Computed example of a mutant assay.
Amino acid sequence: MKRFAPLCLGLVVLTAFSALAEEKTAEEKKPATITFSEGQLEMTVPEGWKTIKPRVNIIEHEFRVPGANGDEDSGRVTMMGASGGVEANVLRWKGQFTKMSKDAVEKEETISNTPVHIVELTGDFKDQRGPFAPAEVKEGYTMLGAIFTTEKQGEYYLKFYGPSDTVEKNKEKFMEMVNSFKIK
């Protein structure tokens, strides 16, 4: 009987740690809510997108999206406030491509009584790691963008780019994030 006591204790401890690990894993998979514009706006981040430190200070939130099967590069999602207008920023996004493989898709929706401009671009993307860094051209990339033109908080830009397969695999999640936009 004395031999079984340590074994039973070990099994109890192992079971407890396993249950805690499963609980933590389930929590990590729950979609997170982010706030921006000093807490006035919010969105839900899709499950599986990892929050990372933004590369540059003007970006409020940044996420890494796991690459689709065969994609070495992961996708990058950024959220930031800016100005300049919808048209100028869409032109700037188009200028980040050296060659477009299909025409840009642009549409306007209304979410939480806010005009939202949705943009999809595909082609060879100039991936620039910072304002003065040299760009590396990445073939076969797609960019999805959403421009929220709020009445009181100004414009906010949600941009997702990466290998086309990765973006296509996560397009529905991106649109779920866009549609989760709320003004508090």
Rank of each mutant, 00 (worst) to 15 (best):
L9H: 02
E23W: 10
E38T: 09
R76W: 13
M80P: 00
R64W: 05
Q96S: 07
T35K: 11
M80K: 09
A68P: 02
P54L: 03
V77D: 08
A21E: 05
E22V: 11
M43E: 00
E27V: 05
L11D: 02
F97E: 00
E23A: 13
T35M: 11
P54K: 00
L11E: 07
A16Q: 08
G67D: 03
W93G: 07
I34L: 07
T51P: 09
E60W: 01
K24R: 12
I52E: 14
K99Y: 07
G75T: 10
H61D: 09
S83P: 03
S83C: 04
R92H: 08
G39R: 04
W49D: 01
K94I: 04
G67M: 04
V90G: 00
V90E: 06
G95Q: 02
G84P: 04
E72P: 06
I34W: 01
V56C: 04
F97H: 00
T35H: 07
L11G: 14
K50A: 12
R76K: 08
T25A: 15
K24A: 12
E60T: 09
S18A: 12
M80S: 12
E87H: 07
N89M: 05
L41E: 01
T98R: 12
K24E: 13
Q96V: 01
F63H: 01
L91W: 11
A16R: 00
D73C: 10
M79Y: 10
V56Q: 14
V56W: 05
E38Y: 06
V77F: 05
T78Y: 05
D73K: 15
E60N: 05
I52M: 09
P46M: 06
M80Y: 15
G70L: 07
H61W: 14
T35F: 09
E60S: 09
T78D: 02
E22A: 15
I34E: 03
A21H: 10
T35P: 00
T33S: 05
E87S: 12
G70S: 12
L20E: 10
P31H: 01
A26R: 13
G84Y: 07
A68S: 12
M43Q: 08
S83F: 10
G75V: 10
E42G: 13
L91N: 15
F63Y: 10
Q96L: 03
I34C: 06
E47F: 02
E22R: 13
G39W: 08
T15F: 13
E38Q: 11
F36Y: 10
D73P: 11
L14R: 06
E28N: 09
M100K: 14
V13S: 00
G81N: 02
E38A: 14
F36D: 04
L11W: 06
F63W: 11
V65T: 09
E22Y: 09
I52V: 15
L41D: 02
E27Q: 14
K24Q: 14
N69I: 07
T51Q: 12
T25L: 14
E47M: 08
P54Q: 04
M79V: 15
F17S: 08
G84C: 09
G84I: 06
M79T: 05
A88R: 13
V12M: 12
W93D: 05
G95W: 00
G39E: 06
T15K: 03
Q40R: 13
